[in-house]
Design a protein around this nucleic acid. Structure first.
Lengths: 223, 223
DNA sequence: CGACGCTTTGACTATACTCAACCCGTGTGG
DNA sequence: CCACACGGGTTGAGTATAGTCAAAGCGTCG
């Protein structure tokens, strides 16, 4: 399952300021791990001593509340890392990390990472930047979920997609509606109804299951 | 307003692994800032090049949504730091930081901090640990707010207070009910009603405005 | 083709918000 | 010292919002 020295290191943003020779050093201490669709990278309460960096594929990170309800935290894309909870903090994390496609991952051991950090302090800066981004995003998400109604949350989400991805005002939902509902702190039923309402108001237009056309961005953001 | 070399550095957790001589070095580049109750440490969109470490006092960090509704993010207590958004990330933050008491703060400039990080890599580890904790807390908060109903959120909050602070099952609310409502993603009215319901059910007992006695922790957590 | 899971729609209900009134404690000024 | 204003807190009534449950449609994969 684990094959050393796989060459994924050069692709990783947190290392992209390093010289080729330094990357080669890092290569030597990384391992590769592969997950099939549906398999888990880790489970809550697991004690894990690794930093995982996603090479290719896609990982879905979510919480489960007491009642078994899912809360999607985020997706992890190529180049992003996870596992830091276990590395920098005694506490176990409490999330699930599940591959939604076949996935390839760089694995770095705690010990090796800590040596790297001492050797190349800029790696720390990169990691802190990423943390900072994630934290900011997470705090914003809490604000959205707790102060805005579902319609507004959906509208904002669509508008943000639009900013990244605005080919002819067409956007593609980056996840299933079920996951999106969970991410936005609502249910699939309510999400579905909300999208239908937007369509009736001529704000958007369904193209296919995952694709939408934004007809009136300004009006959408007024909601 | 800003008085250099104030001696606050030795109290700061992220530096507590350093030697006295090293602390003295850091002292030289820190400044002290004082805020009166109600004053702001920073506002959203402000470009700030500083790391702030709270020496004494209390700071309230919150977001404002489009409609002007407040979302309390967290309180910053002695020894905690803030300002990292501006330091590690190009983006401006989007929160307000307001003193709720008279407050004294250590200020470190970007440049100086970066030099310190290069010199003492362990500081990075401390900061990452703290980020990690904050991120975990924030993601958990999102989950709570979006998957649990208000009763449950309040119950969990009280139970967590109890764990820290369980002198004779008496707990003291660490903030006003107004702020607590915002923190828990609800309104003061609903929070008030919820507490009254708990009291009617003999789960808790009001002692004073800020103090409660927990009568039945197990039952409370069943909700 | 059938099974499964995701999605949509409908009807009903629970939950929590809004608005308004009132209470209470504290601090200020006459 | 009292009166009053102010902000926080509580209570009530009415309503909006979104959740639940159920059924049926749709797509995809074996």
């Amino acid at each position: 399952m684990e094959i050393p020295h796989t060459g994924c290191v050069s692709l990783v943003p947190i290392f992209n300021h390093l010289e080729p020779e330094q990357l080669a050093e890092i290569e030597k201490v990384t391992f590769n791990k592969r997950l099939l669709k549906g398999e888990y990278l880790y489970l809550p309460e697991e004690k894990s001593d690794f930093l995982y960096i996603l090479n290719s594929g896609l990982i879905r990170i979510y919480h489960l509340n007491e009642g078994g309800k899912e809360q999607l935290i985020r997706f992890m894309h190529s180049g992003e890392f996870v596992g830091e909870m276990a590395l920098f903090q005694a506490n176990a994390h409490d999330s699930f990390a599940q591959a939604v496609q076949d996935t390839s991952i760089c694995v770095l051991q705690r010990q090796d990472l800590q040596e790297l950090l001492a050797l190349y302090p800029n790696i720390s800066l990169k990691i802190m930047e990423e943390f900072s981004r994630r934290l900011q995003r997470s705090e914003k998400q809490t604000t959205l979920v707790s102060t805005e109604k579902v319609e507004t949350r959906v509208a904002i989400f669509l508008a943000e997609l639009m900013e990244k991805d605005n080919k002819f005002s067409e956007i593609e939902l980056p996840m299933s509606k079920k996951d999106l509902a969970s991410y936005l702190g609502t249910t699939p039923e309510t999400l579905s109804r909300t999208i239908t309402i937007f369509e009736r108001k001529k704000l958007i237009q369904k193209i296919s299951n995952k694709k939408l056309r934004i007809l009136d961005l300004d009006e959408l953001l007024m909601i």
